[in-house]
Design a protein around this nucleic acid. Structure first.
Lengths: 205, 205
DNA sequence: TTTTAAATTAAACACTTGTTTAAATTAAAC
DNA sequence: GTTTAATTTAAACAAGTGTTTAATTTAAAA
């Protein structure tokens, strides 16, 4: 699906407002006002407010697919794992708005959950993680028996926790700006997750 | 603050609907209908819809404080850690509704974030985790240098991820009923988190 | 039992919601 | 340049929002 310049402008404004105030907390008039267009244009271009969310999701979802090609790299599997965690967190961090929306709307409403593309995305990412783990198990570097679902949930959930408790954690970490918080997530948080997952995959229990 | 039987009935219905449809997605008339009362009673008892949410939060928040007394137990620190994870996840799992509300409203709106009791709760729980880690470091069982904030975020976030992706994960794990999913979280997920945190605290990197 | 207070009700309030309409403007096709 | 189509607009639509009011019923206090 292709979008015109005008449609993209509306999508970007909607993304911003949905992530800030939630889908139900954002009116079409809020969007129209911020985008400096007439309210009717939203229905003219997207049909309805619900379809606007669907289109926004389709517009963004493709980029959330994990890069499968890292599996082909001739580097140690430990480094592949590190690279996967790092690039995934960094991309999520650079696309916070849509991720915020997904987290809320997929959890509360059934809206996005029903979307096939959402399910396909998750299945794909689980598959990539699963393949990396398998590769490590084959080389004897990782212990077998670890469920990729749990690994994925840990990575995703920890990131999300930082996202949803931003203001509390900022004060707790003595961070003042959003930029600094962003840096923290891309360095300290990434390192933490890399260590956590590696520790788990090599841990003897 | 004490609530009458009628007020509690309203609070329980509100909790259920807020967790299902979000705060903005739930109207006072929805609550009144489900609780079989007149709409005006909500404002009569709670003043406003916003204050109803505040009261619901105050009503539940106390129970989310981690039990500090486990620190005094004369059992290995590993077992204290296991017990902390287990009891925390189990309690969260038994109070899903309010946790769902917290996750959404604290993240999107600034509503609950402004609440002092919410901040105090988090500070308290972080302190308990911090004390357990310190105890393990003192006995030489845990490595020093692990930030309790990251441990807490991992535990909380992973649980939340299971909560917010319920329907996807149910199909992925071949789970059909909510009861079974609940059992999974209290057994497999708890074990996973215990292992993860212990692995992280003892991991040599 | 009478008086006072609390609880409950239906109705109205003013405002916001998403969506549609029909007219006006702009752009494209011929 | 005229016609056709696409875009944009202000206005209206019906339904829903949280809240308030004033009247009524129920319960408690005197």
């Amino acid at each position: 699906m292709e979008f015109s310049e005008k449609q993209l402008e509306i999508l970007h404004v909607a993304e911003k407002l949905f992530s800030k105030n939630g889908f139900d907390g954002t009116s079409v008039r809020d969007i129209a006002h911020e985008a400096q267009i007439n309210v009717a244009m939203i229905n003219y271009y997207f049909g309805s407010k619900d379809k606007l969310l669907d289109d926004l999701f389709d517009y963004r979802v493709e980029k959330f697919k994990m890069d499968e090609s890292i599996l082909q790299l001739t580097i140690p599997v430990m480094d592949i794992l590190d690279e996967m965690v790092s690039s995934y967190i960094k991309y999520m961090n650079s696309s916070l708005a849509i991720y915020q929306i997904i987290a809320i709307e997929a959890g509360v409403k059934k809206r996005l959950m029903l979307s096939d593309s959402y399910k396909n995305l998750k299945v794909h990412n689980l598959h990539v993680i699963s393949s990396i783990i398998q590769k490590g198990v084959d080389t004897g570097e990782f212990r077998p028996g670890n469920d990729p679902i749990l690994i994925h949930a840990t990575m995703m959930g920890t990131f999300m926790n930082f996202q949803m408790n931003r203001s509390f954690l900022k004060s707790e970490l003595n961070i003042t700006t959003d930029e600094e918080y962003s840096e923290y997530m891309e360095s300290t948080l990434v390192t933490h997750l890399q260590r956590t997952i590696k520790a788990l995959l090599t841990y003897e229990y």
